[in-house]
Write a protein that binds this DNA or RNA. Structure first.
Lengths: 232, 232
DNA sequence: CGCCCTTCTTGAACGCGTTCAAATAAGCTC
DNA sequence: GAGCTTATTTGAACGCGTTCAAGAAGGGCG
């Protein structure tokens, strides 16, 4: 009652469509149940019942159960960006910046490790719009890549001129690798994923530094050519 | 009628249990339908009907629809091994051996690209027994790793002593990466995956050679330590 | 208010993967 | 062959994600 119910702005388009509250209600309920019971054991009927709506109503807002996950991704991405801010403000060296951002990503996801693992498969399906490589995910993906662009741009590291434009996407790819490991990581608190980050970052740091060496120029170019070829 | 029906060997255990024919029939039917219609659009009812058995009978032999895929993996692995044999016989240099084996793997999978992509997600799920990292897949995984061990063992390449025992598994991991790319590869005939192999193999070759250099010893060790730590 | 159009909501129904108690066939021992 | 045990086969039934025809609720306009 205290909330405004679907006001219409002076402009033609409604600021918040009527169903926005219902949408959020369903989404919040779904996330809660996913966390409580896991993805597979949370039924659409249960989500609808707990949210106090009909099953079909959930499908009015979300095309499928999988689409609820896409919302989860979007939320996580925003959280990741926020969690990374202090690191970006504080650090100026490339290594610590990268490590901080990677750790921030894992930090954000940690509470969801249990159920994130169970629906990870959906994201891995190439034909799925949920794939991180898909057209439909291009917005959150680009946001993530931009985050790594900030890691590079704000650092004092000197990067090979040819490597520089490719680097953010490569770092994002490395992040996807970290996530892949994290999903499979059954160590307590996913401690091994932390070790992976702390072990891999110095290597990446060194690799980036080495790419400028005259001797390694041909190799650098060879790698970059390959990557450019393989990109769609 | 011309076939032997469930003979019993002199030893206690039956060479072919009675249901083996039914099992193979269901499996062959399933593979045919997967190829014809894709994984998702092939129903268990359709498999059973085409094979001329009841639905429940399929579940007597295969715990789930996903388990049919596991059989597909096992078959593919055997085919891969066979397809790699000529390369292993012919080549003695590390690079060509590795490239040949990787290409052989893709060769074997190519006819199934359409439906392999659609069920790839099941393999990616960490909790699934179908995951290439899972306990249940350890037999076919080990067979695959052994194949890469042959790539190394039979080659004239000199490999760093510390790297050598880890190398087969690392190459298998690289192969998994190739498969991951292949699954997402929509270029005609998956030509880009071929480019990936041809581009990556020289790099791997060079990296392996470099690992013996005294200057790079610390880095090599650092990488290997990290890998050992991360392995479960 | 009465009318119309859009947005939202409902729940029964469909097809799917999967389960399971019951029925049947096969082999073994006497 | 009779009886027993194990291996195999059946198909109805369950719960799930999803669809969709039907209706309810708003809001704009005369």
């Amino acid at each position: 009652m205290t909330e405004q119910t679907a006001p219409t702005t002076a402009a033609g388009e409604p600021a918040t469509p009527r169903g926005e509250q219902t949408r959020q209600l369903i989404l919040d309920t779904a996330m809660r149940l996913f966390r409580e019971r896991g993805y597979a054991r949370t039924t659409m009927r249960a989500i609808a019942q707990e949210a106090g709506v009909a099953v079909g109503n959930a499908y009015y807002y979300f095309g499928s159960k999988d689409h609820l996950i896409q919302e989860f991704y979007a939320r996580s991405q925003v959280e990741h960006r926020a969690a990374a801010q202090p690191v970006l403000d504080r650090e100026s060296d490339f290594g610590p910046r990268l490590a901080g951002v990677l750790h921030a990503g894992v930090d954000v996801l940690t509470p969801s490790h249990g159920f994130a693992a169970s629906f990870f498969k959906t994201a891995a399906e190439p034909t799925s719009p949920l794939s991180p490589f898909s057209e439909e995910s291009s917005a959150p993906r680009q946001a993530a890549i931009d985050l790594f662009a900030e890691v590079v741009a704000g650092s004092t590291a000197k990067v090979d001129a040819e490597l520089r434009p490719q680097l953010p996407e490569l770092l994002w790819l490395a992040y996807m690798g970290v996530i892949l490991y994290w999903v499979h990581d059954r160590s307590p608190g996913q401690a091994k994923t932390r070790q992976l980050i702390d072990g891999a970052v110095p290597l990446i740091d060194r690799l980036v530094a080495l790419s400028r060496l005259r001797v390694l120029r041909p190799v650098t170019r060879q790698v970059l050519d390959l990557i450019r070829t393989l990109r769609h």
